[in-house]
Write a protein that binds this DNA or RNA. Structure first.
Lengths: 205, 205, 205, 205
DNA sequence: AATGAATGAGGATTCATTCAT
DNA sequence: AATGAATGAATCCTCATTCAT
């Protein structure tokens, strides 16, 4: 007697578990977070968890895939007319917005280096590749318009933007670092990165 | 007639275990690294491990304390005559040197956010505080000599230097990021941070 | 749609484990009994054990609490009209009945002196206090009715009844001591305790 | 270059370890007491322990054998002229004297029921048999002199004397039981045991 | 779909014992 | 004799996962 399943409900339940997983992974790391705690946070039984995710592994992958989707959505929603350099600034602002949730910051730093499970490594790589290629395209466009230094390849600049954002995230988890207060300095650093070193001091005065 | 115990041997054995721990933690994270694997890497029996470290926890703490000692040693060894701004550059170079060992980079990113175990959190905080206060002193000295912008407090600049180094570390673990190749760009970013935003082009000549 | 959990099944499983624990503890002592053996006796997996009892410790406590409940049940079920002195005799008979199970006798003697774990010590004390206070009340009532010597306080006599029962239990575990054969002698000793020393030999004949 | 070994020193060291073992066994039981703690109490290294006792097992056996020796010494030292009934009373007083050391009481109750290790079981049995046979002989002699009831076999009375002493010991470990205060009551109970039930009041005068 | 009881492989840690010095 | 470092089997307990209801 199959109940008429409401896909919306199913999706909501998945998101509920994903949210709990984000919390638990951010606090204890992947291996340190137990499915029992995730269930407790989500307010569900263990059976329900494995109804929606076949393994703990798959939950982490789902979280990462959600991140990829979000990244794609961000770049897809850009106004094509907006100057690429502005888009890069927007991206940083967008990332800072995510990091306002300390769980997101903790998740990024703690999960970042996992290479043990192949599936997770693949998902992490996919996350990385997506952001990197999208950023690279925008950087390249900005270079073509002369808005960004061109002594470095676009891909390398993209990586360094991600480096700055990752460093920023790693600081969020420690005390005394206010995301909103520090955001302008992040933009300043990204600006310095994209502008390149100060024009030679040879400027005669 | 107690045998004269050789403290050097004991210390060597501890370092051997610490080294194995660094490897395992960097690869699998704290919770994901098993004492069995650490023992296997170190080539010892499980009993020997717990003969030297009462808990897995204490091994992590010992690694972090070693990091603190190294940081202190670095700053203590500085020539007092060296310009502070140069010392900051030296520090970054020193940090890059550590990160040449990919285990160190992995360790930093993976262990960074652990707050579950109070002892670990305390050791992490001590590590953080040591580096931060030493850097702050040097930054402050540099500010007094006019070598570094003074529109931001020294402590905040110190944190941002650490931010850049942490971001750098987080990139080491991902492929296609060569420490030596990227080091100059890190110095460039630190330089931009300490110089502050490009002086307004309105500066009349 | 949560399945209506059957508390009776859960309770039955708990009792099954408690029974196995009684066997193992009686035979090897608390520390000497392994959870693995308890599981084997109970015919369950180790996971099931810890599903019902968080620690081996808690199993022992549960056994002791069951003993407390039984003691309370015994005294509660007494006919208020029954002469207190008879109730004391009934209690001794009841205790002897328990000791017919050699596991009970072994359990009492082996577990009696544990003071290392605070929780166990507390549970043992609760067991002790319950029996002692109930016995004391009955002894006091018997004293008021002139059925028991009153040159000693009721509490002290209660303790001595327990002493006799404990001594009896300690003999059950050694060979050549048949509970049923020896029970009358126990009653005789309790009688001597409650009557006090033989009336002075000054009785002239 | 064998050092001239002083047998007295060796014996003293053994006794030192035996004393530490008594303490540890009484507090934690046999399995619960670790050789490490025994060494700590004795103030020696683990190597020294196993120099004097090949196994933890053998230490317990040694303690029990010491008890046997002491029992034999007690009965051997009796004045043959002393009335047997008095000797029984002396024995009880002697036992009470031992129990003034709470470790002895704890040791007796906690170790009493071990049957797992054959060697220990044998040593316990030897302890039991020694005391029992010696007591039986004295009881039998007292019966022949009409000082003790003879409606029960001497052996059974001997067991019951031990039962009373064991019960007494089991109470020492619990609080509020002063050995010296309670000793007279123990003698009273032994007296009642040896006298038998109060002669029927029908005894015509 | 939802639940939680059951499972057993695996994990951190303990411990009696050995052995080179 | 004395020591303590080293060992690995054994122990308590955890945890992802399965499954009947």
């Amino acid at each position: 007697m199959p109940r008429p399943i409401d896909p919306a409900l199913r999706r909501a339940r998945r998101l509920q578990i994903i949210d709990a997983g984000l919390t638990a992974f951010a606090e204890h790391g992947y291996a340190g977070a137990t499915t029992a705690e995730i269930c407790r946070i989500a307010g569900i039984g263990s059976g329900t968890f494995f109804h929606h995710f076949p393994t703990k592994n798959s939950l982490l992958v789902a979280i990462l895939e959600l991140g990829v989707e979000e990244t794609i959505a961000f770049f897809t929603a850009r106004d094509p007319q907006r100057p690429p350099r502005q888009v890069l600034s927007d991206y940083v602002e967008h990332a800072v917005g995510d990091l306002a949730d300390p769980r997101a910051a903790g998740f990024i730093t703690v999960v970042g280096g996992l290479t043990a499970h192949p599936e997770i490594a693949a998902a992490l790589q996919a996350d990385e590749d997506t952001t990197r290629s999208r950023l690279r395209d925008v950087v390249a466009a900005a270079q073509q318009q002369g808005q960004v230094r061109d002594d470095l390849p676009a891909d390398r600049l993209a990586v360094w933007i991600m480096l700055l954002v990752d460093g920023f995230a790693s600081r969020v988890t420690t005390g005394g670092f206010d995301v909103r207060t520090e955001a302008p300095l992040l933009q300043e650093q990204v600006g310095a990165l994209l502008d390149g070193p100060r024009s030679t001091p040879t400027t005669p005065c």
